[in-house]
Amino acid sequence: MSIIVQNISKSYNDIKAVENISFEVKEGELFGLIGPDGAGKTTIFRILTTLLLSNEGSATVADFDVVKDYKSIRNSVGYMPGKFSLYQDLTVEENLTFFATIFGTTIEENYDLIKDIYIQIEPFKKRRAGALSGGMKQKLALCCALIHKPKVLFLDEPTTGVDPVSRKEFWEMLKQLQKKGITILVSTPYMDEAAMCDRIALIQKGKILKIDSPENVTKKYDKIIYDIRAKDTYQLIQDLKHYPSQYSVFAFGEYLHYIDKKQNFNSTELLTYLQNKNHTEIEIHISNPTIEDVFMDL
């Protein structure tokens, strides 16, 4: 096991940030912490990277205890905080050399590990980090986190504020790194990225709601979801909420996701109901559950 978290709790004054959290990450696994802002993802990262002490529970990273062996952990993990935190007034190359040096290594020594990523930003190596675009900054930050060949890589919301194309590229890079045997713990508020992980933990308000592979999470979902669309979306939400047997309604892209309480739900009944409410251009059909649907239901 690469990461073992057992019954970790941490509160700031009276506010409980994480409560009794336990999970395990296998070696070479790409594990995702999925949850909205304020769910406690960053707190877990800070505890595992030895920046924060938990109130209760224990955790090990790469077989080192986060409290007793914090020095060994700092040598063997890479951490990329959510906020870009490299020196903006140093150049790309200087930043990388700086982090290599304080880890007691050189760029050349571990070049093969970062090569694929670094090659994309190499043309700008004389440019100051502050002048890079969002996607470039993120690649540089990843290079800096990898320069000492860590066993475990912690990525706290690496794709927040990055454009969709760069996000996709970034996840491909993570898949590549995984092939090189690096365990990766990544957090994200985007449900669509969850499908890229081997396993995910759905987390909300400091508690883990579910741990499973993304496929199983959706496969085990037992309710039927209907995509519903009509001309007046706002009125549609209002009317669906007043439908006697409704279970939940929420907006999902251009459709509304509707779940009914009854097993023998008949969509034509709903259609007549909506027609009576003067809705036009009504569409109703069954949709495949996504992780977001599961999350909304938890």
Partner: peptide, 13 residues
């Protein structure tokens, strides 16, 4: 303020 201290703190420095 810049957040670089956090990055430094996880290094073995």
């Amino acid at each position: 303020e810049m957040g670089t201290l956090e990055q430094i703190n996880v290094t073995p420095i």
